[in-house]
């Protein structure tokens, strides 16, 4: 069985939601015992759902667990039968009781220590789960970065620096163009976040006469942390430009909102 495919199928999310049939549940349970990857995935899905559902809970000022314990008659408060008969005590009885109380206190202290440690361990386990998720994400990020680096190191790459224009002279960007596979990688680290309702649009330009062709809008600009975008470009571009346009993009570039521009140096 391909574990990755199994995880990607989405069956584990339904498992946590409780939407599988009984035989399906048993199957997942057996796979969890066999494959730590599946177990980890289930725990992570569950912890995401726990946090989401928790966020919807109204805040409670009362300690409800105490009420639950009361209703279940749990905890240490059973009624004791006290004898009213007078007994004679000798010194041995007192020493015996004192020893017993000391021992009892000692035991309580140990139990308490133990409980505290157990709580700590369970907190650490939860923490560990989160860290594991983070590690996975970091790995994915690293793989992405390596992919980008390899792409722009390709020998067929042409680098085109785009300089800031007009009011936006402090901005910059860089295009790495691989003509062979019709791809450009836009490094837009030098552009500010796109304001709400606006998107950056990338243009391929022919210079004589000036003809802009849209290469599309960068809708996820603010979300992509490394600000590197892979865009298809089949044009014989002579320059690249970036403008800020209303959401959805424009037919033609709005020249007052031209942020950066750069020409392809001809070999």
């Amino acid at each position: 069985m391909n574990i990755n495919e199994y995880i990607e199928s989405g069956v584990l999310e339904l498992y946590v939601a409780g939407q599988l049939s009984e035989p399906e549940n048993r199957e997942v349970y057996q796979l969890i015992q066999k494959h730590p990857e599946i177990r980890r995935e289930v725990i992570e899905i569950e912890s995401a759902v726990v946090r989401l559902t928790k966020s919807v809970a109204p805040q409670s000022s009362r300690n409800l667990f105490i009420l639950i314990k009361e209703r279940l008659n749990l905890g240490d408060k059973g009624g004791k039968v006290v004898s009213i008969e007078k007994t004679k005590y000798n010194w041995l009885t007192f020493v015996g009781w004192a020893a017993a109380i000391l021992l009892g206190l000692g035991l309580l202290w140990t139990v308490n220590q133990n409980n505290q440690l157990e709580t700590k361990v369970s907190n650490i386990t939860i923490e560990k789960n989160f860290l594991e998720t983070q590690l996975e994400d970091t790995k994915t990020d690293l793989a992405d970065s390596k992919e980008v680096l390899n792409a722009i190191r390709d020998k067929d790459i042409i680098t085109i620096p785009l300089g800031g224009q007009g009011n936006f002279e402090n901005t910059y960007a860089r295009v790495y163009w691989n003509k062979k596979d019709n791809t450009i990688y836009l490094d837009a680290q030098g552009l500010p976040e796109a304001p709400a309702g606006k998107v950056y649009q990338v243009w391929s330009l022919k210079l004589n006469p000036l003809t802009p062709t849209s290469l599309g809008t960068v809708d996820d600009f603010n979300e992509v942390e490394n600000r590197i975008f892979e865009i298809t470009n089949k044009n014989e571009s002579e320059a690249f430009g970036i403008t800020l346009e209303p959401e959805g993009g424009s037919e033609a570039p709005t020249m007052e909102q031209l942020y950066t521009l750069g020409a392809v140096s001809q070999p």
Binding site: E8, G10, E13, I45, A48
Partner: peptide
């Protein structure tokens, strides 16, 4: 199934 997986994935990325 797959749509829900993608949604939960989005949620997990956000939480991280």
């Amino acid at each position: 199934k797959t749509r829900n997986r993608n949604c939960i994935k989005q949620l997990r990325t956000m939480l991280v």
